[in-house]
């Protein structure tokens, strides 16, 4: 069994933290994992993505071939569309609904919504609002991870949840609690 996940967003939105949590859960579960990241100049407000591959078998390529991503997890709705050629036939998109506009030619939100509406499986929510309600806005990426949990499949929601706790352990109990609440809210929002 394998799951190919694309994490994407805009530099600085915290996609690598999501990757770290999934990576922690996968390692604990004894799965093979490869995770290609983007470092360097593109982190300055440009589009960023990370390819995360989880499998019970050997994983060769660090990159996901086109048409094979099971899930695209995006911190930004237009960025989710950037990787469409990688999405598999039954693949899901889990995305924040809030646009991050830092370019002059950002498309109309309605055009992005129309594009997303054409796809078979899309979960789209205002993760910042949810994060603000249950924890702090900084946990928005963990809300998104919670929303993605049912689509990740190869790891259970519980395995992901305990990985959230382990990853934030160093930062103290209050931060662990906030992120667990954010995660649970994400799970509940799509459940």
């Amino acid at each position: 069994m394998k799951k190919d996940i694309i994490l994407c967003g805009v530099g600085g939105q915290g996609i690598l933290s999501i990757a770290t949590i999934i990576g922690e859960a996968a390692t604990a579960a004894g799965l093979n994992l490869k995770q290609a990241e983007v470092h360097g100049m593109s982190q300055r407000g440009g589009d960023v993505q990370s390819n995360l591959r989880l499998s019970t078998d050997t994983i060769y390529s660090d990159l996901i071939p086109m048409g094979e991503a099971d899930v695209i997890i995006s911190m930004e709705p237009m960025e989710a569309l950037r990787y469409l050629p990688y999405l598999s036939k039954d693949g899901a998109i889990v995305t924040s609904s809030q646009s991050f506009v830092n370019i002059p030619n950002y498309p109309e939100s309605s055009a992005i919504d129309a594009e997303l509406a054409k796809l078979p499986k899309v979960a789209k929510l205002d993760i910042e609002q949810i994060a603000k309600e249950v924890a702090t806005v900084r946990s928005a990426n963990v809300v998104l991870l919670g929303m993605a949990a049912p689509y990740i499949g190869i790891l259970s929601t519980d395995e992901l949840r305990s990985a959230v706790a382990r990853v934030f352990e160093r930062k103290g109990e209050a931060i662990v609690e906030a992120n667990l609440k954010a995660f649970d809210a994400g799970v509940a929002a799509v459940g």
Binding site: G11, G46, R82, I103, Y106, P107
Partner: peptide
């Protein structure tokens, strides 16, 4: 590499027409 080996792609979706480039920029 798959193409060079004659292996067909599983690609389903075309690139979206509403995309805009997002180059890096000064903080």
């Amino acid at each position: 590499v798959a193409k060079a080996l004659g292996v067909e792609s599983n690609r389903v979706f075309d690139p979206s027409p509403v995309l805009a480039g997002r180059p890096p920029q000064f903080c």
